[in-house]
Nucleic acid binder design. Structure first.
Length: 858
RNA sequence: GCGGAAGUGGUGAAAUGGCAAACACACCAGCCUUAGGAGCUGGCGCCCAAAAGGCUUGCGGGUUCAAGUCCCGCCUUCCGCACCA
């Protein structure tokens, strides 16, 4: 194709033109009302933290979502495709310290910058529903929900050990501690501190959060597994060992204090319990220590070891240590007297903080007992003879009880049931379920977050802020310092208030909420973003929910995605929504890496989206992000690849602009509906017409079918782009025939307009411009998605590989639809096949019509 | 240790159990030129001087007429969980 200087593909110019055009039409990407007669489709990408700069991970995430949204618009859906800002959080305070700039100003400036980047990328969001979580019209509803949850008993305050990041000078949720370090500061060890904290009772929904995972078929199995592990449901038994009265050997059942409750999943092994192990932080340990200074010292050592291990994120590798307390406990089933120990590997915040130790049937107990010479008593005999009956510890539940009194001979499963029943009858235990999931600590001793709407009154204690006083506004004039504690505590105008109950002087709560609160329900707010009376209108939410397709990074598999599920269930129980789950389908895209490593400033391998867009345009950048790898896999960013996509778009540009006049000859303002028909008529006089026309149309209709299918299922957008490239390659190979007019104008129109339509979800700028140049009707975003005609897509002749004994020998061409007999005949007639079968015995011929032929020859 | 995903040319990758390497990138050769980060043509898994031919999807087995794909065992990498009683 000859190069025409005036007609070079100039993404900068095209994209500027269309960005302005789209900005002038704010309704373009707006959803219709809930009374629309189109089917609804809610596509959502995770909202970004406004750091001030989009990174390539964002670009990839949004390119996927935008392609889907655009295709759904073209398919005639009522599409909701919103965007917002997860705008609270620590970086704003750090920036304030560094640049002496108020967090609000810094944040809003960043939002403006990132919004500009998004517009430059041509992402189709309805900005009328934009939400910014750090503004009072949003965060007031965090407060409102907090109060509703408090009314439901889902909020409580508790002094507890918390993860403290010295760098952030604040508390972290368990989910924010990664390998013992802060999730934001990879090198900062998290410390343990005791503080009064606000908690949300997510564990009230533990069972439902777990059960619901089975129904989330549209979620990746990986995410569901991670959530299952995180919730960590464990079925077992709680049993009370009775504390022996000191020095007497008598068992004392007098009061609750005199019992030690343990949790076990293997109550069937209880006759093998030869000690009881307490967590160093167990309350009973403190009682023992009070009377025993020596013990106190040793326990302090254990506690320190545990704390260190926990801070190192290395609890699993701690060397097991313990100290005997000198006290004894009685097994409630048989009165067996066992020593009570304190051990560094027993955790106070799991189960009851105490265990029964059964060395014969638990690896850890076995190791501990071996170290300290504690008795090992076998109580389970293997059920299978393949097991060595003497080998210990024996961990399997395939066994039969021995040395267990009246329970001897029972299987482990039967024994567990019988022992539980006995415990309940004797009121010394019960069946119990324990979760690894902890309640959600939402308190943060920081400034830049939602103020917790509570008031401390000397007379009335904790008093919720009445609804009519919401929002509790975050003061804007504030000095951010590096001192510990909440900065809000140093703002008297904020702290000093009056008690809503008695009108007396009172203090406001100065903790703010974890920012995961903001993102737990933001997608509901999009449906009714301007509502000043409620977080959203339930009827509108019911129309849009559940989200049809949620797209984001897998790094949120447990944090955000479990909190959001909890929040939806909580709102359902408040009567606000009817759906049990927020999103029907979830897609987690892979990371964007460079040279095999995650992009990071420290590695110096960060590629800036702005650079890419400036050099190659938004279309090429986005399309490369979709082309370079399937969306669920990691993507290695290679700039040469972006250049390649840009060159491809240049070929499309030249091809379409070169033959646009042919299309114009057919009139403008067309609707693509009639195209196939018209093209078919154009070919009709000659019957089969030009073979090239037919084969180009075949390729087109195959491509349409492939891409349409992929949007519905596989989401392999990389192969969609490749398919468009193949189509363009074929068109380019037909350049001479296109130029000579050999291809009828209606066919040219069909080919080019559909090519542009297929390109629209992936490269919206060039598609919009070429649509215009072809004289397409209306905006391409509302043009109907192409429909593949199976008749036209069908091959006349297909190639069938012929194998002999599984090895490829020849390829024969047969008319498509040939039956097995015809294919077999064609295969046997092939010269190469004949030369190899002559004089030999063809034992068997396998013909898979349309697929292959295999001859078994001896 | 447990669970999950992945392993295919120089690179990114493609392949409902049926012609391995589509589509690109890089590279090589050539053409064109208004000298551009342009365009066009051809080549490009490995072995063999070439052809013919042979070999090839981490390794080893198996199922099957037929295996990158299914099954078993192993190795490597990445991710998640990890004294959870």
């Amino acid at each position: 194709m000859a190069e025409d200087k005036e007609n070079r593909y100039d993404p900068a110019e095209i994209e500027k033109k269309w960005q302005e055009c789209w900005a002038a039409d704010p309704k373009l990407y707006a959803a219709e009302t809930t009374s629309s007669n189109k089917p609804k489709y809610y596509v959502l990408e995770m909202l970004p933290y406004p750091s001030g700069q989009l990174h390539m991970g964002h670009v990839r995430n949004y390119a996927i979502g935008d392609a889907l949204a655009r295709q759904m618009w073209m398919r005639g859906y009522n599409v909701l495709h919103p965007m917002g800002w997860d705008a609270f959080g620590l970086p704003a305070e750090n920036a304030a310290l560094k640049n002496n700039m108020p967090p609000r100003e810094w944040t809003l400036g960043n939002i403006a910058a990132m919004k500009r980047q998004m517009l430059r990328l041509g992402l189709g969001y309805d900005w009328a529903t934009e939400i910014t979580t750090c503004l009072p019209d949003y965060y007031r509803w965090n407060q409102w929900f907090f109060l509703r949850m408090a009314e439901k008993g889902l909020v409580y305050r508790k002094k507890s050990k918390v993860n403290w990041c010295p760098e952030c000078a604040t508390v972290l949720a368990n989910e924010q501690v990664i390998d013992g370090c802060c999730w934001r500061h990879e090198d900062t060890k998290v410390e343990q501190r005791d503080l009064e904290q606000w908690f949300l009772r997510i564990t009230a929904y533990a069972e439902e959060l777990l059960d619901g995972l089975d129904k989330l078929e549209g979620w990746p199995e990986k995410v569901r597994t991670m959530q299952r592990n995180w919730i960590g449901r464990s079925e077992g038994t709680e049993v009370d060992f009775f504390l022996e009265e000191q020095g007497t050997g008598n068992r004392d059942q007098g009061s609750e204090k005199q019992r030690i409750r343990v949790f076990t999943t293997r109550v069937d092994t209880i006759f093998g319990a030869t000690s009881v192990q307490l967590a160093p932080a167990h309350p009973l340990v403190a009682a023992f220590c009070a009377a025993d200074p020596d013990l106190k010292m040793k326990v302090a050592g254990l506690l320190e070891e545990q704390k260190k291990a926990r801070e190192a994120g290395d609890v699993g590798a701690i060397e097991k240590h313990g100290v005997p307390t000198g006290r004894f406990a009685m097994n409630p089933y048989n009165g067996a007297r066992v020593p009570i120990w304190v051990a560094n590997y027993i955790l106070m915040d799991y189960g009851t903080g105490a265990i029964m130790s059964v060395p014969a049937h638990d690896e850890r107990d076995f190791e501990f007992a071996a170290k300290y010479g504690i008795e090992v008593r076998r109580v389970i005999r293997p059920a299978f003879e393949t097991e060595d009956p003497e080998a210990l510890p024996f961990l399997s539940e395939d066994g039969v009880l021995v040395n267990s009194g009246e329970y001897d001979g029972l299987t482990c499963g039967e024994a567990q049931m019988r022992l539980q029943e006995a415990a309940e009858r004797g009121k010394f235990g019960n069946a119990a379920v324990t979760y690894r999931l902890k309640d959600w600590g939402v308190s943060r001793q920081r400034y830049w977050g939602t103020p917790i709407p509570m008031i401390h009154c000397e007379r009335n204690g904790l008093v919720p802020v009445p609804d009519e006083q919401l929002p509790v506004i975050l003061p804007e004039q504030i000095e951010i310092t590096q001192q510990g504690g909440s900065p809000l505590g140093r703002v008297p105008e904020f702290v000093n208030t009056t008690c809503p109950k008695c009108g007396g002087p009172a203090r406001r709560e100065t903790d703010t909420m974890d920012t995961f609160v903001d993102s737990s329900w933001y997608f509901y707010r999009y449906t009714d973003a301007k509502n000043a009376k409620a977080p959203f209108d339930p009827a509108t939410a019911q129309y849009w929910f559940p989200i049809n397709q949620y797209i984001g990074g897998v790094e949120h598999a447990i944090l955000h995605l479990i909190y959001s599920r909890f929040w939806t269930k909580m709102m359902r129980d408040l009567g606000l929504v009817k759906n049990d789950e927020p999103a029907r389908r979830l897609f987690t895209q892979g990371m964007v890496i460079k040279d095999g490593a995650k992009m990071s400033k420290s590695k110096g391998n960060v590629v800036s989206p702005d650079d890419m867009v400036a050099r190659y345009g938004a279309d090429a950048t986005r399309m490369y992000a979709l082309f370079a790898a399937p969306p669920d896999r990691d993507l290695d960013w290679q700039e040469d690849g972006v250049a390649g996509v840009s060159r491809f778009l240049g070929r499309v540009w030249r091809l379409v602009t070169k033959y646009a006049p042919v299309v114009h000859g057919e009139g403008t303002g067309f609707s693509p509906y009639a195209q196939s028909q018209k093209a078919t008529e154009a070919l009709a006089p000659e019957g089969t017409a030009s073979g090239l026309s037919a084969s180009l149309r075949r390729k087109l209709h195959q491509t349409i079918a492939k891409i349409t299918q992929d949007f519905e299922g596989r989401w392999h957008f990389n192969t969609c782009v490749a398919a468009i490239m193949e189509l363009v390659n074929e068109l380019q190979d037909a350049d001479a025939q296109l130029a000579s007019g050999e291809i009828p104008a209606p066919v040219v129109r069909e080919l080019l307009t559909n090519l542009v339509l297929l390109l629209a979800p992936f490269a919206p700028f060039i598609a919009a411009e070429l649509w215009d140049q072809l004289g397409g009707e209306g905006v391409i975003l509302r043009a109907p998605w192409p429909k593949s005609d199976p008749e036209l897509a069908k091959e006349d002749e297909i190639e069938i590989p012929v194998q002999i004994n599984g090895k490829l020998i020849a390829v024969v061409r047969v008319p498509s639809g040939s039956d097995a007999k015809a294919i077999e005949a064609a295969a046997l007639a092939d010269e190469k096949v004949r030369s190899r079968t002559v004089g030999k015995n063809v034992v068997k011929v396998i013909v898979v019509p349309g697929r292959a032929v295999n001859l078994v020859v001896k």
